[in-house]
Write a protein that binds this DNA or RNA. Sequence first.
DNA 1: TAAATAATTAATCATTTGATTAAAATAATT
DNA 2: AATTATTTTAATCAAATGATTAATTATTTA
Lengths: 204, 204
Amino acid sequence: MAKKTKTEIDGSTEERIKEAARIVFTQKGYAATRTRDIAEKAGINLALLNYYFRSKEKLFNQVMLEKIQQLFGMLLPVLSDETTKLEKKIEMVVANYIDMLLANPDLPLFVLSELRGQKEELQKVLPIEKIIQNISFIKQLQEKRPDIQPIHFLMNILGMTVFPFIAMPAFDAVGIIKKNDFEKLIQERKALIPIWVKAMIKAK
Amino acid sequence: MAKKTKTEIDGSTEERIKEAARIVFTQKGYAATRTRDIAEKAGINLALLNYYFRSKEKLFNQVMLEKIQQLFGMLLPVLSDETTKLEKKIEMVVANYIDMLLANPDLPLFVLSELRGQKEELQKVLPIEKIIQNISFIKQLQEKRPDIQPIHFLMNILGMTVFPFIAMPAFDAVGIIKKNDFEKLIQERKALIPIWVKAMIKAK
DNA sequence: TAAATAATTAATCATTTGATTAAAATAATT
DNA sequence: AATTATTTTAATCAAATGATTAATTATTTA
């Protein structure tokens, strides 16, 4: 932790470094990111980065934890709400998630690819054991379809929602989808995915 | 291209380097890969790598082209076959794709995350413009559901099939899924995804 | 205002890393 | 066998890069 003082409590320097780090890390990944790039983007001297964050890895871990929270954190509140019924939950999760992803299109690819690298510190900090157990979403699915593992439907929702954002750079690089059409496509999916998920829950 | 001679036509040295490169690049990504790692894994002197492939980037491009082919190449033959009807195509694509992915679990995350980096050479080599147009799969979908863009269903199939492999490292790092359960889950999906896709094509 | 603390910078280190070179070992050709 | 060409290695280079240090500037505090 950097020592706090009035000058940077308002977030000026430390926060500017972190914001630059968010952008560069997310765009290029940990290994391809140079601390000099972050410093330049933040408009500060390279030494300041180490002054505030000690090392590239420490800075990365802070950013990464945020990003993991951002990517997974939204799911629990909705999925574990006891008062909302299954169909409504599906609609809410998909709509919320798509909105978040449209605001952070390269978030999933960043988090999922960096998690492959197994930064030790990170996997401990996640209390996701509860996520799978306590959330009522799982129970609701089990009631409707006791013959199919609930995790399947969760993967289907996430897959259909998140995959387009993961594949977008590839599709874009190849010219399948023009940047502009993408958002339109995604907006359509916001309405369609809940319909599809409900259909597949019923499907025999 | 390296000069060919009897000794390495059988693939000994050059192929051993390439095979090591496939493994290391796929596991760690381009930026995090050190040519020394590849050399060590191949059991050869570092200079040999440059002797055969000139540079890290040239070696990577060769591997990457293979991997792209591996990831996308399988789709066209099945999807564009005029004689196979839609339902059968869905079953075949899912089954073939899952088998391929089980044999190459980190292929999608590797290709999709590296494609984000926009290596110029690569995107030109792909004649995927035809893929979207000529394949009869698209037409078959349009006949059944003229009210929905066919690309949606393609994304659903790919998303439900590929996403588990992309999210697996994350789920694994967090302990959601034990390595062993994963393959069982995937095998279940081989039968389930076609059922789900057919259901969502009918869904109104 | 003076002293002390914090923030910032320029210069520099030490390591890593992709790549090259020159020589040695191996294989092919005559 | 002698010569030539190819393959392989050890040693080294040069650039990139994460990090540190010592000095300078700005801010806070007494």
